[in-house]
Simulated assay, not measured.
Amino acid sequence: MFDHVVFGVSDYAASKAFFLKALEPLGIEVVHERPDGIELSSDGKVSLCLLQTEEKPAHLHLAFVAESRQQVEAFHRAALAAGGKDHGAPGLRPHYHANYYAAFVIDPDGHNIEVVCHRPEA
């Protein structure tokens, strides 16, 4: 839905490590890196950019699409292993719709990171 999203992080090294490990199950990898920032993508087009900043950014909610419920679960495990804090274990959220299967974690800067699969269970 978007071309790219850029947001500031207070500890670039910690955020880089967190996002690389947490989003690895989704096939997201480094597209470009410079000393104070990184661009991540799974398709080489749409990207997520993290930049070191001293500003206090408002909390952000980022939701990534998963192709399967297993990817949602793998993201949750990887994100917790990378130092994320649980903010909603993998599971159905039927108040959104019948097949909304998602997991939520809080990243090193307090941002709410979600991975969601909209498909029925295989």
Score class of each variant (00 low, 15 high):
Q52E: 15
A81C: 04
V115I: 15
C117Y: 06
H32S: 14
E33D: 08
G88S: 10
Y100P: 11
R93N: 10
S10H: 11
Y96E: 05
T53K: 07
I38P: 04
E114F: 08
H118C: 11
P108A: 01
A103W: 00
G37V: 11
K16A: 06
P25I: 03
P57E: 05
H59W: 06
D109G: 03
H59A: 12
V6E: 05
S68V: 12
Y100K: 11
P57S: 07
D36T: 06
V116I: 11
F2I: 10
R69H: 06
G110S: 01
R93A: 04
S15T: 03
P35E: 08
H111Q: 04
I106F: 02
F18T: 00
G83K: 05
P94A: 14
H4P: 01
S41I: 13
R34G: 04
L50A: 07
A98K: 13
L51Q: 12
L20E: 03
G37A: 08
E55F: 15
G84R: 03
F7C: 08
K56T: 11
T53Y: 05
Q71A: 10
V65D: 15
H111P: 01
A78T: 01
V46R: 15
S42F: 15
P108W: 00
H97Q: 09
H118Y: 08
I106Y: 00
F75R: 06
G110I: 00
V31P: 13
V9L: 04
A13Y: 06
H118F: 02
A58H: 09
E114C: 12
E55S: 15
A122W: 08
F18S: 01
Y12C: 03
A122H: 14
E29W: 09
A66G: 13
L62F: 13
L92G: 02
A63K: 07
A102Q: 08
P90C: 01
H111T: 04
G88C: 09
L40H: 09
H97W: 09
